[in-house]
Write a protein that binds this DNA or RNA. Structure first.
Length: 219
DNA sequence: ATCCCGAGGG
DNA sequence: CCCTCTGGAT
């Protein structure tokens, strides 16, 4: 679509400008009080909307506010609380395993490097990048979730379907300063306008720079 | 490539 | 019914 890296950078600048104008606030929608709670909420957000995560985390964090508490929770207790989110056995296992490793290896204090974070159960690059960027202001990479993947493909910023390659491509065309905000704004855009099943193209602030326009009539 | 897994929308 | 939702581990 955009053959050269320079063409992609030019497109990326247009995207960033329009996103910033249309979505002035770029914030994480997952409710949390501490970095630990943000990490737990992000683990729970796999294949599930933020609203649904926010509907269970008040109960989860009331009972298990920190790593020590969660590490001591039973599998049945945690499964019961996160059941409605799907993948509940894996998520409960990962939450407890994450908390236990944080207590045992890191003395209850979350590590602040991507390399260490992804050794925690249930934590991959996407989750680690959310935590580092949102809680600590560290731009370790670009958060690539289902929305970022879909829309970055649509906009011609990458042709890959592989999250690691997509992240590399986006890091190459986006200013580092925008890595965090790009993801937050694109996720919001993906939920409100560029919805996977039925995109609201007539309301889209990116319409003029979306290569999809003219190819496939969507109303 | 496949599994995990529930809820909501069209 | 089918698709999608802020993925990660095997």
């Amino acid at each position: 679509m955009f053959e050269s890296i320079d063409a992609k950078k030019k497109q990326a600048r247009k995207v960033v400008t329009r996103l910033r104008k249309h979505y002035p606030v770029a914030e994480c929608a997952l409710h949390h009080e501490t970095p630990f709670q943000l990490l737990a909420a992000t683990i729970l957000s796999a294949q599930c909307t933020d609203e649904r995560v926010n509907s269970v985390t008040p109960i989860l964090f009331e009972k298990f506010p920190d790593a020590e508490a969660l590490a001591a929770g039973t599998q049945a207790q945690v499964e019961k609380i996160v059941k409605s989110l799907g993948f509940f056995r894996a998520k409960a296992t990962n939450l407890r395993g994450m908390a236990q490793r944080v207590v045992e290896v890191y003395d209850g204090e979350l590590p602040r490097t991507l390399e260490e974070l992804i050794t925690l159960p249930g934590v991959g690059r996407k989750t680690a990048n959310v935590l580092l960027g949102t809680a600590y202001g560290i731009a370790s990479g670009v958060v690539v979730d289902t929305h970022v993947r879909r829309i970055s493909n649509l906009l011609g910023l990458t042709e890959s379907q592989n999250p690691d390659i997509i992240e590399r491509d986006l890091m190459a065309v986006l200013p580092k300063k925008e890595w965090i905000t790009y993801s937050h704004r694109l996720i919001h855009h993906g939920r409100q306008i560029c919805i996977a099943r039925r995109p609201k193209c007539t309301e889209c602030p990116l319409l003029k720079i979306c290569p999809r326009v003219g190819l496939d009539p969507l109303e």
